[in-house]
């Protein structure tokens, strides 16, 4: 019995120590990356290459997902609004849902699955094949050369992807609402124009997507940089990236929504 209790305590202690060590490594990673960020802006070519990798190559999943989400919003929104005789407001329901919430949040979740996991796996494999160590021995700082451009690329790509997600979603809602269910086209657009506020809705949506971009790319890069340089280590790090980013995005979304929209 006593031995069992001691084992539990030892496991608990080990867990706490591991968590503290991980926080320490996270802090060291942050201290290393922060000074590298401004310097990497001087090499825009590296950032553009990475925007292609994390942004352009994510377009397909973002656009398809955006269109389907918009279409589902069109169907669901119409069935509810029609009950109250206000189906003409479909445009504003679709647009606000997307711009305020679904655009930034779903884009961040998809971004974590598509680009974040790829960043983690890439960095993890570079570590396990000694490419990062090799760079250091060539007097090239991997944080500056490899990590910082990927960070900027994620921060730039996320809001653009979220904007495209919302745009395609609004078009998807239009296709279903106007094309299939007979909502008036003029009402769809004019309601959006009059009800969606630039500062309150669009700017706040952009702020959200920038924050999610920073969080998603930061977690992905840290997990890749910190992973154990083995096949199992890379696989676990990739999973952690998706799980941790999803939880962080959803938690932050709640906090930011509460702060921004004064609910």
């Amino acid at each position: 019995m006593m031995r069992h209790v001691l084992n539990v305590l030892a496991r608990l202690g080990r867990g706490v120590l591991d968590a503290l060590a991980r926080m320490g490594r996270w802090f060291v990673f942050m201290l290393g990356l922060l000074p590298a960020l401004p310097a990497s802006l001087l090499r825009p070519r590296l950032i553009v290459d990475q925007i292609y990798q994390v942004g352009v190559l994510s377009l397909q999943i973002i656009l398809v997902a955006g269109a389907f989400v918009g279409m589902v919003l069109g169907l669901q929104g119409y069935s509810i609004l029609a009950t109250y005789g206000s189906a003409e407001s479909l445009g504003v329901v679709v647009a606000l849902s997307l711009v305020r919430e679904l655009g930034p949040v779903l884009t961040a979740l998809l971004f974590a699955g598509r680009a974040g996991s790829a960043l983690t796996a890439e960095l993890g494999l570079m570590k396990s094949t000694e490419q990062l160590a090799g760079m250091e021995m060539m007097a090239v700082d991997p944080l500056k050369r490899v990590v910082a451009p990927r960070f900027w690329a994620g921060v730039v790509a996320m809001p653009l992807l979220a904007a495209l997600f919302s745009l395609v979603g609004v078009l998807g809602g239009f296709a279903i609402g106007v094309g299939l269910l007979g909502v008036d086209s003029g009402s769809y657009w004019s309601q959006i124009q009059s009800q969606v506020d630039f500062r309150e809705d669009i700017i706040n949506g952009i702020i959200k997507s920038v924050v999610f971009g920073v969080v998603a790319v930061w977690i992905a890069l840290f997990e890749g940089y910190d992973c154990l340089p083995t096949a199992e280590g890379v696989s676990r790090a990739t999973t952690r990236t998706v799980v941790n980013t999803s939880l962080a995005v959803l938690g932050l979304d709640f906090i930011m929504t509460a702060l921004m929209f004064n609910v």
């Binding site: 494999l125 094949t129 000694e130 490419q131 160590a133 090799g134 250091e136 021995m137 007097a139």
Partner: peptide, 19 residues
């Protein structure tokens, strides 16, 4: 240290080439 490393070459066991 980085200036010194520029004068040192190192071959890792598996090459460590950038893939």
């Amino acid at each position: 240290l980085f200036a010194l490393r520029q004068r040192m070459g190192m071959l890792f066991q598996h090459g460590a080439l950038l893939t």
